[in-house]
């Protein structure tokens, strides 16, 4: 899933609303840490909901402020009270312990504490491991989803090309190499009812970097631009070119990058009549 898709999936809205599941929440926070644009979107949603919440604002009763402040002082003071002042001597209340039950209890509780701490450490490290493998699995899942998408697109493209090629109105025109480039070969597929034109490059030498191949349709004796093309990667079998209602021949020349208005006939590689 791309960030754009992730942003529009609705999961960020439910995260900010607080209605996301625990798993979604962890996932959102992980992705937000990785991608600033996702984090920005979260903040924008938060700001909108903050504004919405603010429409309900109202003054609390005046006396509440002092009441809350006293309460806060209590919690701040509490830990200080239990601290033993420096220099103060602790005297045991129980002056003559014969069988010290308290001491036994203390020992037992220390043992329990050590045991439970050890258990906590163990559980915590297990939790960490689980979290790590979850993150790894999620990353893997995303990778496979991405792969699947690439494959589906390529399959769909192939199916469309297949459908085009097998139509009865699709003509196959072999563009053969001129004597200077006798090895060169290309094939034009032209559908005379839809007028779509596709090109397959069977064999053309790699062009210099500032040059590009250009396809021409010969219409009523004149060359008309049918589009420039690169030697495509292996994934693309057919390249879609411009559409033509009528044409008597197709030819490929090597032109400056971006194509020319008129073909350079000295650099013609292949030609074929319809």
């Amino acid at each position: 899933m791309s960030n754009k898709e992730y942003i529009s999936s609705g999961v960020l809205e439910s995260y900010v609303l607080g209605s996301a599941t625990e798993q979604e929440r962890l996932e959102v926070e992980r992705i937000a840490r990785l991608y600033p644009e996702v984090q920005e979107e979260i903040v924008a949603i938060q700001d909108a909901l903050n504004e919405y919440a603010l429409t309900h604002q109202q003054q609390p009763p005046a006396a509440l402020k002092q009441k809350i402040w006293s309460k806060l002082q209590d919690i701040d003071v509490a830990p200080v009270r239990s601290e033993v002042k420096q220099g103060a001597k602790i005297v045991s209340i129980n002056s003559a312990p014969s069988f010290n039950f308290q001491r036994l209890l203390a020992a037992a509780s220390v043992t329990l504490l050590i045991g439970s701490t050890a258990l906590n450490v163990m559980l915590y490290s297990e939790l960490k491991n689980t979290e790590e493998s979850l993150t790894a699995l999620n990353a893997e899942k995303e990778f496979f989803a991405q792969q699947f998408k690439v494959q589906s697109t390529s399959l769909q493209q192939t199916q469309e090309e297949m459908a085009f090629l097998t139509q009865p109105s699709t003509r196959v025109i072999n563009l053969k190499g001129v004597p200077k480039f006798s090895d060169a070969l290309a094939t034009a597929y032209w559908n005379t009812s839809t007028h779509d034109l596709y090109l397959k490059i069977n064999n053309l030498p790699a062009p210099p970097s500032e040059m590009q191949y250009q396809l021409w349709a010969i219409v009523d004796g004149k060359p008309v631009d049918a589009g420039v093309f690169d030697l495509a990667d292996n994934n693309v079998i057919l390249q879609k070119m411009k559409s033509f209602n009528s044409a008597q021949a197709f030819a490929v020349t090597l032109e400056k990058k971006g194509g020319s208005v008129a073909p350079n006939l000295d650099a013609m590689y292949v030609i074929g009549n319809v």
């Binding site: 919440a53 604002q57 109202q58 609390p60 509440l64």
Partner: peptide
Amino acid sequence: SPALYGIVMKIVNSEEAAQDVLQ
């Protein structure tokens, strides 16, 4: 506090409860 009290009032819908919750 006005923003927080407002949202709390909205949720608990009682002034007495809202004051406790705000605290």
